[in-house]
Design a protein around this nucleic acid. Structure first.
Length: 439
RNA sequence: CGGGGCGUAGCACAGCCUGGUAGUGCGCUCGCUUUGGGAGCGAGAGGUCGCAAGUUCGAAUCUUGCCGCCCCGACCA
């Protein structure tokens, strides 16, 4: 993509409404634009990142055996009356009346909707286990939206729902998602740690939240320092016993958020206990028959009798992750994207556009990168070198390739790694190999 | 929802106290000079000063009401 043809409205100064670093950088990098409190438009650069994160989440859900569906944003109030949550949910739920005076709501979550789908079509234990997920916009009318995209009212969330015949099956489904989450966050370049969580209004017995460590996190977390050195599971699939072993290992260390932390009950030695702040990016629940019972989601068991299914739900805040990743990965100059979610893999800077040999060398290298399938943002504008570097640093592409008059003669391309700051001078061919990931 | 703050050009702000034809920097457009880490000179474009009512000969400025946004707290799958 040529920058001269792109839409990247960057800012040199910090917008005053943005107090935390991810919000500031997202606005300055031209990723989002606020529409109203807690509601944002996603501009091209932001949309690319959002899509990349969504794709990683999707791939890991698919690998875990969950099936992607897509449920609507607007739901009928009647479904929520069945579960009793239409009255319970409170003002956070945005209620809407259509032209026929039917009461609708903009979904804050989809337990009722998915349970309705399940009960309409699944009748036999032979169809279990089943895990359905979707990646869809949610709306929660927060009293106080803040921190940009991190605590918005409208947000993109992956939510999966598992259906099993009994608790043992549900436990496997739960462990399966637990492990999928470890893999997902690792692929996103994040150190995420699972915490035992309060089950809250959603009810249920088993619940963990996954938090990313960042100084600007909303909650304080306490954990055993060895948690961070655990290896992320990397096999494509695991048996039920293996899943249990992984979950046991990860939950075997002390880890709690401030609401669950009890200094008296915490037996971790002071030297081993780390206190930091964290951002919740995922939350998984086993809630058994809370919805299936009241909504009549049953299947015929092996003996022909109806069994109420055991359910769990598993959320990942996809849009929140955009902010979470920035909070966890930035420096003074701007964002530092992990390669897995970067909007482009590399930036190409023409140091002296308007200079014919330089333009030619850059255009040629750009063509080669495209030919090799490298997603590259080519700054072919007439801006000054310093501004180009600053802009590239701000938007945080993993690699920066620079070609200037000096390099044109010698055929040298300077390659900078955004994360390490390390620079190397390479021939165009070697640079191409590097950016194409072939060396 | 309690407390606090702010709405003036795309962004950051001054002007308001003490009413008199709308300013600065960055960004944007054009020209020239520049170009290896946020350039220089010159010329431009761009604002019903959040909205409404009131006071006044005259309101960005004073008064009242409303709307919007931000921050702290409470809240939070």
């Amino acid at each position: 993509m040529r920058l001269s043809r792109y839409f990247l409205p960057t800012l040199k100064e910090d917008p005053k409404e943005a107090q935390i670093v991810s919000h500031r950088l997202m606005l300055r990098a031209g990723m989002i634009q606020q529409s109203s409190a807690g509601i944002y438009s996603w501009l091209p650069l932001g949309q690319r990142v959002l899509r990349n994160i969504e794709q990683v989440v999707r791939e890991e859900q698919d690998r875990a055996g969950a099936l992607e569906i897509l449920m609507p944003t607007l739901q009928p109030a009647d479904l929520w009356r069945e579960s009793g949550r239409y009255d319970d949910y409170g003002k956070e739920m945005l209620r809407i009346t259509d032209r026929h005076d039917r009461q609708m709501l903009y979904g804050p979550t989809n337990e009722e909707q998915v349970t309705d789908i399940f009960r309409s079509h699944v009748n036999s234990y032979k169809n279990l286990p089943l895990n359905l997920y979707h990646i869809q916009w949610k709306f929660r009318d927060e009293v106080r939206p803040r921190f940009g995209i991190m605590r918005g009212r409208e947000f993109l969330m992956k939510d999966a729902y598992s259906f099993d015949l009994d608790f043992d099956g549900a436990k496997i489904a739960y462990n399966n998602m637990f492990v999928a989450y470890l893999k997902t966050f690792a692929r996103l370049g994040l150190k995420a740690i699972p915490l035992r969580a309060a089950t809250g209004p959603i009810g249920g017995d088993l619940s963990h939240e996954f938090i990313v460590l960042a100084d600007t996190g909303e909650s304080e977390v306490f954990y055993h320092k060895d948690l961070l050195s655990l290896e992320t599971p990397d096999q494509a699939s695991y048996s039920a016993d293996e899943l249990q072993a992984i979950v046991d290992k990860w939950t075997g260390y002390y880890a709690a958020a401030d609401d669950m932390h009890d200094a008296a009950a915490c037996d971790v030695a002071a030297d081993d206990l780390v206190t930091r702040r964290g951002i919740e990016v995922g939350h998984i629940f086993h809630f058994g028959d809370k919805y299936s019972k009241i909504m009549g989601a049953t299947v015929a068991g092996p003996d022909g009798k109806d069994v109420t299914v055991s359910m769990g739900s598993y959320g990942i805040g996809v849009s929140r992750l955009v902010g979470g990743i920035i909070e966890a990965s930035h420096d003074y100059d701007g964002i530092i994207w992990p390669e897995s979610v970067a909007p482009f893999k590399a930036g190409l800077i023409n140091l002296k556009s308007g200079d014919e040999p330089c333009d030619q060398a850059c255009d040629e290298f750009y063509g080669k990168l495209q030919g090799a399938g490298v997603e590259v943002l080519y700054d072919d504008t007439s801006g000054r070198a310093g501004e180009k570097f600053a802009k590239m640093d701000l938007i945080g592409l993993p690699w920066q390739a620079t070609i200037g008059p000096r390099g044109v003669k010698s055929g040298i391309v300077e390659i900078k790694n955004r994360a390490t700051g390390e620079k190397q001078e390479l021939s165009a061919d070697d640079a191409l190999q590097l950016l194409a990931g072939r060396r």
